[in-house]
Structures are given as structure tokens and as C-alpha cells.
């Protein structure tokens, strides 16, 4: 069976104005809209399209986090994934620990493709895909904006600084996706119904026998300095005077 594993992370919705907790211990998540990391949603959409082309048989969505992540997995199932796995933990795991979880699940499921978002919009780490390729010793194609598959290979167009780069990699492989790859579908009613009956396995992180990496500790979170309100000046001399007053020229 040709399987695709897709990672889905629960994050603060992209459109929410993020607020830092007054004590600096992190950002406010109480009562805040949570969604699937947008890059992960694009990854899932791509997996669904691959399956719809008859090039995959099963799509498994995998999330690592608190119990509430089940909501995002259910949404993934409603989009069209076949089954879901939640590795439940209340800890805030770093990318290497996350990668080891993926490695473990991959060793059990034997997918021939893993599609991930290029990064999660909460921590912007952009590490899991690359580290996973290294741990598995699989080929990787990052920042994908177009993916074409055949039985043994994937041709991937990557968004790089200088423009677009086309590469070919052997399967199984890790692909991380960029914003322009596709536009994810809306979920429609019958699909949401079907999603309720699809399997969602919850496994405690502690049962995986992975020691969390503690090399990174978040010490403090601060909001960026607030921008001063601008002023309107009437003419160029007034502008120069203002700049002089501020000691900028």
C-alpha cells in the first residue's frame, strides 16, 4: 500500500493578533482561535490531490501535542485524510524530539512519501523536515511549489532565493511545502460526517520511549516594541526640522 504521512500542527490562527502574556512566559492562547498550521494544510491538500490522481492509497495525518490537537486532526480527516494519529503530550517539544516521533511512526507505517509544511508559523523553526531526512537518510525536497510523482521518483520545483529550482528525488522521500503549492479546499458537509467515523489513534508520548531533547529552553517572550504613531508634516522644511529635532540628521 502506498502511504503518505502528513504532519499537522495546532497553532494560533494566522489571522489572530498574537498577544504576549504579561509575565513573559509565552503567548496568550486562552480563548484564541487555533487552526492547522497553514503550511501543513497545504501539505495535506497536496497529499489529497496525489491520492485523487491514483498515486497513493492512504493518507495518515500525524500531530504531536495536547489533546485539543484532535480537533485539527478531525479537520484533516474532514478534508479527506484516511486516518489520524495523535502523539499526546503537554510538553512543548523541540524540533529534534518532534523529528524522532516522526521517525518512530514512519518506521511503523512505512510510507513512501512524507509531506510536511516548510515550517510552523508559531515558532518558525523550519527544521523538522530537514532533520527527519537526515535521521532517516532519505532524500529531501524543501520549499516545494510544484510536485509531480511517478512510482519511484518525485520531481519537485523548489522556491529558492534566486527563483525556482527543479530537482528529482528518489522515493521514499521527505517533501516540505511552500505557500504557493496549492490552495486548500473547503470542507463540505458529507466529508465532515465521514470524518467522524475515521480512526483517530491517541498514543501517549511517554509510550514511545523517546527521551525529549532539552538542549533548548525558552527563557522569556517579549512583544516587539510598539511603533510610534506617525505625524503629518506640511512641507519639506518642516520635515527637516522634525528630523533635526529628533537628532536623526
Amino acid at each position: 500500500m502506498r502511504k503518505i504521512i502528513v504532519g499537522l500542527k495546532r497553532v494560533i490562527d494566522y489571522n489572530v493578533r498574537v498577544r504576549v502574556r504579561p509575565d513573559g512566559s509565552g503567548v496568550e492562547t486562552d480563548g484564541v482561535k487555533m487552526s492547522i498550521n497553514p503550511f501543513d494544510e497545504i501539505a495535506l491538500e497536496e497529499a489529497l490531490r496525489i491520492k485523487e490522481q491514483g498515486k497513493a492509497d492512504e493518507i495518515i495525518v500525524l500531530s504531536i501535542g495536547a489533546s485539543e490537537s484532535q480537533q485539527q486532526l478531525r479537520t484533516g480527516l474532514a478534508m479527506g485524510a484516511d486516518r489520524a494519529v495523535l502523539i499526546e503530550t503537554s510538553e512543548n517539544l523541540d524540533p529534534l524530539s518532534i523529528t524522532k516521533v516522526f521517525q518512530k511512526i514512519i518506521s511503523q507505517e512505512n510510507p513512501n512519501l512524507v509531506i510536511l509544511g516548510k515550517q510552523a508559523i508559531d515558532n518558525d523553526n523550519n527544521q523538522t523536515g530537514q532533520m527527519l531526512a537526515a535521521l532517516l537518510e532519505w532524500p529531501q525536497a524543501t520549499f516545494a511549489s510544484k510536485i509531480s510523482l511517478n512510482d519511484t521518483k518525485a520531481e519537485v520545483i523548489r522556491e529558492v532565493d534566486a527563483g525556482l529550482e527543479t530537482i528529482e528525488i528518489n522515493l521514499p522521500a521527505i517533501i516540505t511545502v511552500d505557500l504557493r503549492l496549492n490552495e486548500p479546499r473547503y470542507v463540505k458537509l458529507p466529508d465532515i460526517m465521514k470524518a467522524k467515523k475515521k480512526p483517530l489513534d491517541v498514543i501517549a508520548f511517554g509510550d514511545l520511549d523517546i527521551t525529549p531533547n532539552d538542549a533548548i529552553k525558552i527563557l522569556n517572550t517579549e512583544p516587539p516594541e510598539q511603533r510610534q504613531k506617525g505625524i503629518m508634516v506640511d512641507n519639506v522644511p518642516a520635515l527637516i526640522k522634525e528630523l533635526e529635532n529628533k537628532g536623526l540628521i
Binding site: 490562527d13 497553514p38 463540505k188 458537509l189 460526517m193 467522524k196
Partner: peptide, 23 residues
């Protein structure tokens, strides 16, 4: 979803989507 499905079953709506994010 359950509420809207009941509307589909009673033929008051034909289709519906539920948004999954603020976008």
C-alpha cells in the same frame, strides 16, 4: 456539522461548508 446535516436531511439546504480557519 450535525446541525447542518439535519438541515440537509430535511431538504432545507443542499450543501454547506464549515470554515476550518480564519483565512
Amino acid at each position: 456539522n450535525d446541525q447542518l446535516m439535519s438541515f440537509v436531511k430535511s431538504n432545507h439546504i443542499s450543501n454547506a461548508v464549515i470554515t476550518k480557519n480564519l483565512t
